[in-house]
Computed example of a mutant assay.
Amino acid sequence: MEEKELIEFLAKRLVDDPNGVNVKVIEGEKSTILELKVSPSDIGKIIGKRGRIASALRTILFATSMKSGKRVMLEIIDD
């Protein structure tokens, strides 16, 4: 499973409004940035208490990106 689909899959199961989940990929030479955007009412569910959910998502993303050899970062966009 590609990193984008993995983050979308996990985020949609964490939030109340799965249709509000959007992941944008920004490719670079040595790294990739995934921008995760959710509905304003669901931002707390993605970040979690003391950032634990966000940290867990980043850890999973880091582990899956090891096989590609490219650094993948997750940014949670709050509008």
Rank of each mutant, 00 (worst) to 15 (best):
M73I: 04
E75G: 01
L36I: 05
V38M: 05
A56Y: 02
I46P: 04
G28Y: 07
A56K: 10
G44L: 06
S65P: 04
S55F: 12
L36V: 08
T64N: 02
F62A: 13
V23K: 03
I60K: 05
S39T: 12
K4G: 01
R50Y: 14
G20P: 08
L74E: 01
S41E: 07
D42S: 05
N19D: 05
E2L: 10
F62H: 14
S31E: 15
L61E: 08
S65I: 02
G48L: 15
T59E: 15
N19T: 13
I33H: 07
D16P: 09
D16V: 11
R13M: 13
N19F: 13
D79C: 00
I46K: 08
R13G: 15
R50Q: 15
E27C: 01
K12Y: 03
K24L: 10
D79E: 09
G48I: 09
E3W: 07
T32R: 07
E75V: 14
S65A: 15
A54Q: 11
D17S: 12
E8Y: 04
F9W: 09
L6S: 14
E2G: 11
I53K: 12
V25E: 10
E75R: 07
G51E: 09
A56S: 07
I46V: 11
I76C: 00
N19A: 14
I26A: 11
D16A: 11
I7W: 05
A11S: 05
L34Q: 06
K45S: 05
D16N: 13
L74A: 00
F62S: 12
E35P: 07
K70V: 15
L74T: 00
S65C: 12
I47Y: 02
I7M: 02
I46F: 09
M73D: 13
T32L: 02
L10G: 11
S55P: 00
P18W: 06
S65L: 14
L14A: 04
I26S: 07
D78I: 08
E29K: 11
I76H: 03
K49Q: 00
L36N: 12
A63V: 10
A63W: 03
G44F: 08
R50I: 14
I33S: 06
T59S: 05
V38N: 02
I26P: 04
M1I: 02
R71E: 07
N22Y: 05
A56F: 02
V25D: 01
I47D: 04
D17M: 06
D42P: 14
D16Q: 11
K67H: 10
P18S: 02
M1W: 13
R52K: 08
K37S: 05
I47S: 03
I53M: 01
M1Y: 04
K12G: 12
N22T: 15
M66I: 13
K45P: 03
V38I: 00
K12W: 04
L34C: 12
K37N: 09
K24N: 11
I47L: 08
K30W: 04
E75W: 03
A54W: 05
M66S: 08
E35Q: 13
D79T: 13
L14P: 00
D16E: 15
I53N: 10
P18T: 01
